[in-house]
């Protein structure tokens, strides 16, 4: 029983960065933009938070940090960093109508470069004398749990033992889901992603929706990076440790068929698959790697299945990947 609870809790912690990433990407894709820069954006979100928190910790000393600034500074830095990434992407693809795949991939190159550069050079640039970027104090602030969680037993642990960002991820996914399906903004946004010419004719400002969806989506995805360093990695930044999580988030978008509420459960599943090898006895290290393959294989199967089945609601937004240009005479 305890093992199961432990497994589930750890799976959920693994799941949260993916959930942030895929919620952000779903929002972006719903506007018709396939943002392959998501891995880079999540990475930048993480490092931006780290930069903010590092500078704060160094300026007042790790033992003196206050709760509010310790959380708000990295949070704002993270949002700002990922917003900038979103702006670069939307300026290039919406205003300049650049190819989305190329722009996205370049953004990922840039973003991982940005993250690794500052991850490797932050100490030198800031002129501090510390051996590594270890933000344990800030991480502790981020990981503050509900005070009564410990007293609730295993079931309590399963539901109440996470940091606030984890709950935020689920709430954001649910809110995004509701906005997409239950509000006029969502209706307009989906129309933009499906058929921008129709949306344009109906008086919807297509570019504004595309910018908003991409930038807000980027900010949501960036939070995934922040959660990863502050919570999962306990405030320790090491270059490239983020791994393939960004691409897993893109896979999750397909797996959840562009529905953020499905992505919540999907992310738990992916998170579980990510760590399940630790819970299978007598498993070789090599086989673990094959198990890590399953999320991608499952995603491919979902992709094939939906395209063979051809149910219109399960298809990618119809104008995904195409830029919109209103022909004028």
């Amino acid at each position: 029983m305890n093992t199961v609870i432990a497994f589930l809790t750890r799976a959920i912690v693994q799941a949260i960065p993916l959930l942030f990433g895929s919620t952000g990407e779903i929002l972006t894709e719903k506007s018709g933009h396939l943002n392959l820069g998501i891995p880079g954006i999540m990475y930048v979100g993480g490092i931006s938070g780290v930069i903010g928190s590092f500078l704060y910790e160094q300026s007042v000393g790790p033992e003196n940090i206050q709760y509010l600034p310790a959380v708000l500074i990295p949070l704002c830095c993270c949002l700002l960093g990922s917003l900038c990434m979103g702006l670069i992407y939307s300026f290039l693809t919406v205003t300049l109508r650049a190819n989305q795949n190329v722009t996205g991939l370049a953004l990922t190159t840039f973003g991982t470069g940005f993250g690794n550069f500052f991850g490797g050079s932050l100490i030198k640039i800031s002129g501090n004398d510390v051996p590594s970027i270890t933000l344990t104090a800030t991480s502790n602030m981020f990981c503050k749990k509900l005070p009564f969680a410990a007293s609730l037993g295993p079931v309590g642990r399963l539901f109440f033992s996470y940091s606030f960002l984890a709950y935020a991820a689920v709430v954001i996914a649910l809110v995004t889901s509701w906005i997409l399906t239950g509000t006029r903004i969502g209706l307009n946004l989906r129309a933009v992603g499906e058929n921008p010419a129709t949306a344009d004719a109906a008086g919807i400002n297509v570019s504004r929706y595309k910018y908003a969806a991409t930038c807000i989506g980027s900010m949501i995805a960036g939070l995934g990076g922040l959660f990863y360093v502050m919570d999962y990695a306990a405030g320790v930044w090491s270059n490239n440790a983020f791994g393939d999580r960004g691409w897993l988030a893109v896979a999750l978008v397909i797996f959840s068929i562009w529905r953020p509420n499905v992505a919540i459960l999907g992310s738990f599943l992916f998170g579980g698959l990510f760590i399940v090898h630790n819970y299978i006895p007598n498993l070789g290290v090599a086989t673990q790697e094959l198990i890590k393959m399953t999320p991608y294989v499952v995603t491919i199967i979902v992709l094939i299945f939906t395209s063979v089945r051809k149910r219109r609601e399960d298809q990618p937004p119809a104008s995904l990947g195409l830029s919109y240009f209103r022909e004028e005479r």
Partner: peptide, 9 residues
């Protein structure tokens, strides 16, 4: 003549 409708709506 050419309908301006979103198919999945």
């Amino acid at each position: 003549q050419h309908f301006k409708l979103v198919d999945v709506f």
